[in-house]
Amino acid sequence: MSESSGHFDERADIAPGAEEEHSLRARVLGYVVGLVLALLLTATSFFIAGTDLVWQPSIPVAIVVLAIAQMGVHLVFFLHITTGPDNTNNVLALAFGLLIVFLVVGGSIWIMGHLNQNMPPMEQIMKMQ
């Protein structure tokens, strides 16, 4: 009785990093797919950063997008954070972490950018007058 209820719990929740029951072949394949995708995204990032082929102002945006995509690949294929119902707790914790990260990084860049603009060093104010 207690053994089977424990089993029921395992079906209802899954630990971060844990996978649902898969064959060895499927698990190894998951890591291989993740590695190939990550290598491709990395190679694209480094290529984009040093190329003259694309419109230059688009490069920072492309690097940020590629980085976010690669973090997603790592989360799904290496950390096994998925959108499945057994993963809700893990995803909610991740979502809260991301909220704080965006507040800290976005807020700092935003506020410090305005400070730089509104309060330039003294010699720059003298030049403007």
Partner: peptide
């Protein structure tokens, strides 16, 4: 409704996941 607390390996990994996020 859960019959009881989650197994220890799930609680441990979840706690460590929270640490990683922090």
């Amino acid at each position: 409704e859960h019959a009881g607390p989650a197994p220890k390996h799930i609680v441990t990994a979840y706690g460590f996941w929270i640490f990683l996020l922090s």
